[in-house]
């Protein structure tokens, strides 16, 4: 049953694992990115295959429909330009008032649109990979928002072409969150049930926290990773824990983490 060849194979596998697990973390992450890059040609093929039905649909769209869409987009563009002009004026006023009060100026954030190219194949992590990497100026710990502007996570690892984003609800993505209520309660978002991706746990709340379902939850700006005021979700329910010494709540996320296709990366 146990031939010499079997012993050799067993030994080789054990040796490979021991070498891999004992490598320094930097070398491991480089090796991981190198192995992951084997899949790059398939990303391109899959992207092209996904794009093909949309291109076909566009090519058979009637001219009248296209003109209608152009007209609608022009109107929307005009409205957005007006809103942007207002926002610029408000930002300028805000900077002036901050200057008068001697507060630090707000650093403007830039947004970069990225496509979600794949999801974590393991059920015990919540990560996705996006098609922006260090060549696009992406760095670790940059906040990531959904296409609608809701918080979805942060950049965890960056390679030249791709980046790994760890999503809210993963044990490695903890977010300091502020509840929009009279008490301005602050807690920390952490992992919850592995199956339901729309709910996350909000812990470390004081026992006097006055939480009601439907209250909005935003980033608090504490911790230095996420800027203040990014919408996260709404309070779903709350209950006292630790014999009434603390409160714990569940937050229904605004972003649909299971259907992410495009995300914004906030670049300072």
């Amino acid at each position: 049953m146990f031939k010499q060849q079997n012993y050799l194979a067993l030994g080789a596998v054990v040796l490979v694992v021991v070498v891999l697990l004992s490598l320094p973390s930097r070398a491991t992450s480089r090796l991981k990115l190198a192995v992951g890059s084997w899949f790059l040609p398939l990303f391109g093929l899959a992207g092209a295959a996904q794009q093909l039905p949309a291109d076909l649909a566009d090519s058979v769209l009637p001219r009248r429909e296209l003109l209608k869409q152009i007209d609608s987009l022009r109107r929307e563009n005009q409205q957005l330009k007006e809103q942007q002009a207002q926002m610029v004026a408000i930002a300028r006023e805000n900077d002036q008032l901050r200057g008068l009060l001697g507060w630090q100026k707000n650093v403007p954030w830039q947004l970069k649109l990225a496509n979600v190219v794949l999801r974590d194949p393991a059920n015990w992590w919540r990560t996705v990979q996006i098609d922006l990497g260090s060549r696009d100026g992406i760095q670790t710990n940059m906040p990531v928002l959904s296409a609608e502007g809701f918080l979805v996570g942060r950049v965890a690892a960056v390679s030249f072409l791709n980046s790994q984003v760890v999503l809210i609800g993963d044990p490695n993505c903890r977010v300091s969150a502020l509840v929009e209520n009279p008490g301005h309660d602050v807690g920390v978002l952490s992992a919850t049930d592995p199956v339901d991706r729309s709910l996350v746990q909000l812990g470390y709340l004081s026992s006097s926290a006055n939480l009601k379902s439907g209250q909005n939850v935003f980033t608090s700006g504490l911790g230095g990773v996420f800027p203040k005021g990014i919408p996260i979700g709404k309070i779903y329910d709350a209950r006292p824990v630790e014999y009434g010494l603390a409160t714990e709540a569940r937050v229904k996320l605004n972003a649909n983490l299971g259907a992410l296709e495009q995300v914004w990366v906030l670049i300072k």
Binding site: L20, T28, F39, L118, A156, V166
Partner: peptide, 18 residues
């Protein structure tokens, strides 16, 4: 391959598969 696309440390899935 599995670990490279996942947040698993590289090499963790080899032993269970073997």
């Amino acid at each position: 391959w599995f670990d490279s696309l996942s947040a698993n440390p590289l090499g963790v899935s080899i032993v269970p598969l073997f």
